Amino acid sequence: MLVKDSTAEDQGIAFGWSNRAERLENNLNTKFGIASGCKVFTAVAICQLIEEKKLQFDTQLYELLAHDLPLLDPNVTIHHLLTHTSGMPDYFDEDKMENFDDLWKTTPMYTLRQGKEFLPFFQIKPMKFKPGERFHYNNAGYIVLGLVVELLTGKDFQEYVEENVFTHCGMVNSRYYEMDKLPENTAMGYIQGEDGWKSNIYSVPVKGGADGGAFVTAVDMIRFWEALIDQSLLSEDMSEEFLKPKVRVKEGVSYGYGLWINTASEQVYKYHVMGYDPGVSFHSCYYPAEKLSLAVLSNRSSGAYEMMKVVEDVFSKS
């Protein structure tokens, strides 16, 4: 966990095992999987391409990927995908499925290294609702955004983000590592079962992509917030647009482009991203009034949210 406030002082703590078998401890430079926490990187990538005039928020997805998505409503736009309001079917339907592991019973997770390999999970399913009708969290929508990045840049999605987001922010220890090629000082994800702990290597795709699965450090995540808020990652106008609430999720909570936005009395008091997978728990926030950044990374399936709330309570009382 790492906290950075307006005094530019870092306050961090690391504990637990990054590798239980070898009894290697976590530290502040340990790389953790962050699951859906990296959707915000995908959103930044799309906004960069919009700034380059290669795309628009109201560009219809059908114009770009109609041959891959034959049942797609032609009115689905890039904005709908970014805000989870497209109505597209998902590859993991939380309304019908409880266990993420169920996905890999017919398609081994070790075969999924590129976004296009997820298409068979959802490309011939019918739309769930009309575009723009409501918010419904959707991983497939972000998979498709990754395919758009690849189509417009001629690069693998992961390569584009590593070059144009991570490198730009100084996120020197962050990458879309493959689970079977993890570098040193990377936390293995662990799942607790009735017979003890097991790793998550058979529970998540072998390589992350546009919907989730990057590995970052706490230090690097703080650097991302700094670059986003300082408007050095996107232009001033695009940065302001990026940080506006786009769709109401519930009272006091909205979604923007790749991140959650909490408001009170119509004022934003927290921007945050989060990710949960088997063996992964992640929360990271920026509090604009306090100019405070927070990153909590865990290689267990839960715990990051609880830690974040403890830190919030401490700072609210100080």
Score class of each variant (00 low, 15 high):
36 S>W: 11
218 A>T: 08
162 E>L: 11
13 I>Y: 02
161 V>R: 03
120 P>G: 13
226 E>W: 06
314 V>W: 01
55 L>D: 00
174 S>M: 02
9 E>Y: 03
102 D>H: 09
247 V>M: 13
223 R>H: 06
86 S>H: 09
25 E>C: 04
45 A>R: 04
242 F>S: 03
153 T>G: 15
196 G>A: 01
73 D>W: 08
29 N>R: 12
263 T>G: 10
65 L>T: 05
294 L>A: 01
202 Y>D: 14
291 K>C: 13
174 S>G: 07
118 F>I: 05
262 N>E: 08
204 V>P: 08
33 G>Y: 02
72 L>R: 04
104 W>E: 03
4 K>F: 12
234 L>M: 00
183 P>D: 00
41 F>S: 02
77 T>Y: 09
97 M>L: 15
103 L>M: 12
269 Y>T: 07
162 E>M: 15
222 I>G: 10
195 D>K: 09
138 N>G: 14
93 D>G: 08
251 E>H: 06
212 G>I: 07
114 Q>A: 14
120 P>C: 15
218 A>C: 07
294 L>Q: 10
267 Q>S: 12
88 M>C: 07
256 G>M: 14
128 K>M: 14
63 E>I: 08
118 F>H: 05
278 P>E: 01
242 F>T: 04
217 T>Q: 12
244 K>M: 15
210 A>R: 01
273 V>F: 08
160 Y>L: 02
304 A>G: 09
42 T>Q: 11
285 C>Y: 12
106 T>C: 09
47 C>A: 10
111 T>F: 15
45 A>W: 00
127 M>W: 09
305 Y>I: 13
159 E>M: 13
295 A>S: 13
207 K>G: 05
176 Y>V: 03
114 Q>M: 06
159 E>Y: 09
101 D>F: 14
193 G>K: 00
110 Y>A: 09
140 A>N: 04
158 Q>C: 06
154 G>F: 06
86 S>W: 11
6 S>F: 10
110 Y>N: 06
283 H>L: 05
317 K>H: 04
38 C>N: 15
318 S>W: 07
313 D>L: 06
92 F>Q: 00
27 N>Q: 02
154 G>A: 01
233 L>W: 02
192 Q>M: 15
88 M>K: 04
153 T>P: 08
7 T>R: 05
